[in-house]
Design a protein around this nucleic acid. Structure first.
Lengths: 332, 332
DNA sequence: CTGAAAGCGCTAACAG
DNA sequence: CTGTTAGCGCTTTCAG
């Protein structure tokens, strides 16, 4: 019995001939090792838990897919949980994941403050990597350099001749939103002293983008550009602008963040930031496996760089990519 | 020890006073029962496996979210797997899920033919419910009445005065695509004898919608309406139309299917079919639990009804919702 | 109603 | 290199 175990888990060297016999027989019998029993004995499940705030935000499915792929390569499985943007649910999910004896946790927290307790609890018991959104500054984190990303957007807009800016964002309780907002404020003010008075903070939704744009419209004059903290907000804003016959990018430029499907599906297509989802996922998995292998490792944080993707929504000055059929009044 | 187990799992009646003492102590110690050990002993993990073809299709995250919620209510957990539209990966995932000793399987198969083997294998070993896409006619299935949904679209379009139709669809190897296509053919032909010659089958992507629309443009005259088997295709098609200065819905009506975020994010907003995702999920979970409870139960199939959501993209005849700023040449 | 004891399927320590 | 044995943490007989 022990020999069979050794052959099948490849843990120990076994006489090749015997090993072959075991393998053949196992295959003939359709034998598959019971991972539950193995987990109980080894005290390791080869399963990691992942908690995301909301699968409905298309950014997260992309991350989940990449994470699952990265885990599969090292034959780990994924226990996925959606917190529904609810910190209480999130805490409950983390506890449930403990009970499942997951070997580690990947978490994108709902709230940079309110999620701290759950995150701390989790980190005290398990290797944990924060991904994208974080609550604990001193714990491992994999995310993108938000300031640099926002900088790229503003540089691009400035180059397009934009001199006044509004900013639509979810509530800054989300760490990424907060970082983007701060970056926006510090950089936009150099170009536009009033930028700070045109911050519209709501939530992550299409509807909020729409609503915020309506407020921007009411507070005329329009800024040259509306920078949005994510694609959903941006697309909502564009919708509202369209309803009010304000043309993007002619009358106002709009930018998003995440480069989700929405960016390409909207009309006009959205200039946005492409998150390095693959790298985010593989870095997170690597870091988590390292932490599982040696729990005494110090926290490790990685900031990846995201890239600007220029599409129609920000091209103002009659550049090459402006749609030709917009007519002679297309230039401002 | 046995008494503690009985109290904590509530399986057996225990002297209330003793039970209280156990509970207090357990709480004080922060005791949590180890689900792996329990699973080994009980031969049941309280975990179900779910395999979806592609999380990148926004329909599936919605389903996953709903399923996870429904499972949480009955304290089951979800082991999620993304097959990446690859039948071989799908089969491997199913095997892996066996090894995890999941109590049941929810699967939306990649291919109605090629996935049969994997599905049959799975069904032979475990309670299994097919959800949305199916491969096995005789096994349990929860989905929507595609024919009725397509019927609603065509009725609506006919009412808008459309008399000629094109149809953009993924490859009919996907069961839902195949059912929708068949429904389209049988119903559209009554209105348009040529409908069968305007079928564009490709894949589930934005890009295919775009490409198919280009082909439709090349094969002028334009049909009155382009019916699409999903929102992604529809939005891709609208993009191509826009690039060629064809106005939706003035020059051609376009409809989608799924009512994802894209439907509302696109310009013009998309008339589409809203899938009853919540009901789909809760029915699937109910059916699966029933099958787990009594594996001898006969297969059970449920067809839910989906509803038409009318938005701008199909309103042709100067109805209320046509955007007013389109100008006097807006009517065809 | 409660306690003692066996055992779920596996792996690892220990002999040989 | 291989076999025997104990035991992971829990639940469920079986006695009492």
């Amino acid at each position: 019995m022990a020999t069979v175990s050794r052959v099948l888990s490849g843990s120990h060297s076994v006489n090749p001939e015997l090993a072959a016999r075991v393998e053949v027989t196992a295959r003939r019998l359709g034998y598959r090792t019971n991972r539950v029993a193995r987990a109980l004995r080894r005290q390791a499940t080869q399963t990691i838990g992942m908690v995301v705030p909301d699968l409905t935000n298309p950014f997260f499915p992309a991350v989940v897919q990449a994470v699952e792929g990265a885990l599969r390569e090292v034959s780990f499985s994924l226990l996925l949980c959606d917190a529904g943007n609810d910190v209480a649910v999130e805490a409950e999910l983390v506890r449930n994941l403990f009970d499942h004896q997951v070997d580690g946790l990947l978490i994108s927290v709902c709230d940079r403050i309110a999620s701290r307790q759950a995150a701390r609890l989790a980190a005290s018991r398990l290797p944990l990597i924060q991904i994208d959104r974080r609550a604990l500054g001193r714990m491992s984190y994999v995310g993108v350099d938000q300031a640099h990303a926002i900088g790229q957007i503003l540089d691009h807009l400035a180059q397009q001749g934009c001199r006044s800016f509004a900013y639509i964002t979810p509530h800054p309780a989300i760490s990424t939103a907060s970082e983007r907002l701060e970056a926006f404020l510090s950089r936009a003010r150099a170009l536009d002293p009033d930028a700070g008075s045109r911050i519209y903070a709501g939530d992550f939704s299409f509807d909020w983008g729409h609503e915020a744009a309506l407020r921007i419209l009411r507070a005329r004059p329009l800024p040259d550009a509306i920078v949005c903290a994510n694609d959903l907000n941006a697309v909502g804003a564009m919708q509202a602008l369209r309803e009010h016959h304000v043309q993007v990018p002619r009358d106002v430029a709009v930018t998003g963040f995440d480069d989700t499907l929405l960016a390409v599906a909207s009309g006009p297509q959205l200039t946005t930031i492409r998150q390095p989802v693959q790298e985010l996922a593989s870095e997170a998995v690597t870091a988590l496996r390292a932490a599982i292998g040696d729990p005494s490792l110090p926290p490790r944080s990685t900031e990846l760089q995201a890239g600007l993707v220029v599409r129609e929504s920000s091209l103002r000055a009659g550049g090459d990519r402006v749609r030709p059929h917009r007519g002679p009044d297309g230039a401002q």
